[in-house]
Amino acid sequence: MFSLFLEQMLNGFQSGVMLFLMASGLTLVFGVMGLINLAHGSLYMVGAFACAVVAAWTGSFWLGLVASLMAAALAGVLVEILVIRRLYRRDHLDQVLATFALILIFSEGTRWIFGSFPLFLNVPDLLAGTVILPGGAQYPIFRLAIIAAGLLVAAGLFLLIGKTRLGTRIRAGEADREMIAALGINIDRLYTVVFALGAALAGLAGAFVGTTQSVQVGMGEPVLILAFVVIVIGGIGSIKGALIGSILVGFTDTMGRFLLPLALSTVTDASSATSIGSALASMLIYILMALVLFLRPSGLFGAKA
């Protein structure tokens, strides 16, 4: 029982890091440009499809991964120049509607090109198989690789924003867009670059997470909602917040699914315990979000509104 408990803790952490992969790009775009991008899930889908198609064509997951980064970044650049650029000065409402429209376009466009059936995408041979963890549990190598990738992305983002010139500009852009324009920085290009970076992160997440899931049209939507929950809990625009929010949500969800039916079975019969327990578990992360925002209306690490 105890080793199962430990394994579930690791699962919770792993699912949190997976969420962070998805949420990092969203929070970057959100923080810098103040843009609600509902189409972030579509970019995630683009990444997964690009990886699946190229991997099937060339037989190499790694080429697929490169393709997913490029395809998502390219889609991001196109979307930014054609649509998003016109929305920065609009209110959130217009952004919601426009990116809602983008979801329809991406989803049906993808279905038009690739058909209505899910695509195949599998874990690369290098990362297939399992390892025995201390404590005896068998754990898929690929899930450990996801943890590593997520932590790398987190570290990369911290370095990028804290230590590079682009990072300085991004931070300046978050603070005051008029000021950086006055400093002679081409703000249009900066925003295109940031949006493309956010899109590439979404595409990377799509390729990685797509190997464990179904690569199909609409795969981005549940992810999108979860990613929003994460960045709102963490505080919008904060990379640290997104990381901690992700892990909090991952833990809450995994442990809730595991423990709630068990806990309820001590007070009621087994079958109603499993069904009530899982019903509660599916509501749990939203309850967590409401609770966090009730106590801290700007999220855990958000700037005061």
């Binding site: 699962n11 699912s15 464990t212 899931q213 699914r257 595991f258 899982s278 599916s282």
Partner: peptide, 15 residues
């Protein structure tokens, strides 16, 4: 075990 409709990660259930 009853999972969430639309769930995509089954690590906890597999454990």
């Amino acid at each position: 075990v009853y999972t969430k409709l639309g769930q995509t990660d089954y690590a906890a259930e597999i454990a």
